[in-house]
Amino acid sequence: MSKHLKIDFVSDVSCPWCAIGLAGLQRALERTAGEVDVELHFQPFELNPNMPPEGQDIDEHLGEKYGASPEQSAKNREAIRERGASVGFDFRMEKRGRIYNTFDAHRLLHWADEEGEGKQLALKQALFKAYFTEGKNPGDIEVLIAAAQEAGLDPVRAREVLEAGTYTEEVREQEQFYLRNGIHAVPAVIINDRHLIQGGQPPEAFEQALRQIAAGIAG
């Protein structure tokens, strides 16, 4: 009999290690199919909550935020591309020249979580692909609506949610909840509200953690 696990995946759609971590987690879930039954929710975290709508050049941003030179940034991007490829995620770094504001993407993800099983995951994957593979702006309303449609969501309702500012308060509250509880870097994968796995871990690390946690559940 499979063990039920609730997973809260705290992340940002502009975080490359979050895309790597999600791909790693999904591979681990494939390997543990039949052993664990997972309820997966994506929770909001903004790496750059004060980013203006037009965004910022990525090298300029990384230099200001981390003191990284363009050469260091290029080396880091290549390492990320290789890690992504190892778990089946396609980073096309040459298409991604800017960092954008992601708050509206989090509002849309909050809505998707209410639209049925698998919809939020499909939207999250569509948003990662739009930004990291296609180089699109995840703060642009038309990009967000297209991602929603790709995920099997109603594009008309998606536009209504985005234009009306729906779920603004709910997303802000969730962001503050995780910050108050010590989440200051993502991805942060929280299992059954107790177990924290930090960072873009490889599938083997997630697989081991899932099995260990499931083994500790009575029944």
Score class of each variant (00 low, 15 high):
residue 189 V to R: 06
residue 119 K to Y: 04
residue 151 A to M: 05
residue 191 I to A: 04
residue 185 A to S: 13
residue 128 F to S: 01
residue 116 G to N: 01
residue 190 I to K: 10
residue 137 N to V: 03
residue 168 T to F: 08
residue 146 A to V: 10
residue 192 N to A: 07
residue 179 L to I: 15
residue 185 A to W: 11
residue 169 E to S: 06
residue 133 T to W: 07
residue 146 A to K: 06
residue 176 Q to A: 15
residue 151 A to P: 11
residue 146 A to C: 10
residue 160 E to G: 09
residue 116 G to T: 01
residue 140 D to G: 08
residue 182 G to I: 06
residue 123 L to M: 04
residue 159 R to H: 07
residue 127 L to S: 01
residue 176 Q to E: 14
residue 169 E to P: 08
residue 129 K to M: 12
residue 126 A to Q: 02
residue 170 E to A: 12
residue 148 A to G: 09
residue 152 G to I: 06
residue 186 V to N: 09
residue 110 H to N: 10
residue 183 I to D: 09
residue 112 A to E: 00
residue 114 E to M: 14
residue 188 A to F: 10
residue 180 R to A: 14
residue 167 Y to S: 02
residue 175 E to S: 13
residue 117 E to R: 10
residue 133 T to E: 11
residue 164 A to L: 13
residue 114 E to G: 11
residue 124 K to P: 14
residue 139 G to V: 03
residue 154 D to F: 03
residue 191 I to H: 00
residue 156 V to P: 11
residue 154 D to A: 06
residue 175 E to F: 07
residue 126 A to P: 09
residue 157 R to G: 02
residue 154 D to P: 05
residue 107 R to G: 06
residue 181 N to A: 06
residue 131 Y to N: 03
residue 161 V to I: 10
residue 109 L to A: 04
residue 190 I to C: 08
residue 169 E to C: 05
residue 149 Q to Y: 11
residue 115 E to R: 12
residue 170 E to S: 10
residue 163 E to K: 12
residue 140 D to H: 09
residue 176 Q to R: 15
residue 159 R to T: 05
residue 178 Y to F: 13
residue 144 L to G: 00
residue 162 L to A: 03
residue 188 A to K: 09
residue 189 V to E: 06
residue 185 A to I: 08
residue 140 D to S: 09
residue 144 L to S: 04
residue 127 L to T: 02
residue 136 K to C: 01
residue 184 H to A: 11
residue 110 H to A: 13
residue 112 A to C: 07
residue 187 P to F: 05
residue 166 T to Y: 11
residue 163 E to Q: 12
residue 164 A to E: 12
residue 107 R to T: 05
residue 109 L to P: 02
residue 137 N to R: 00
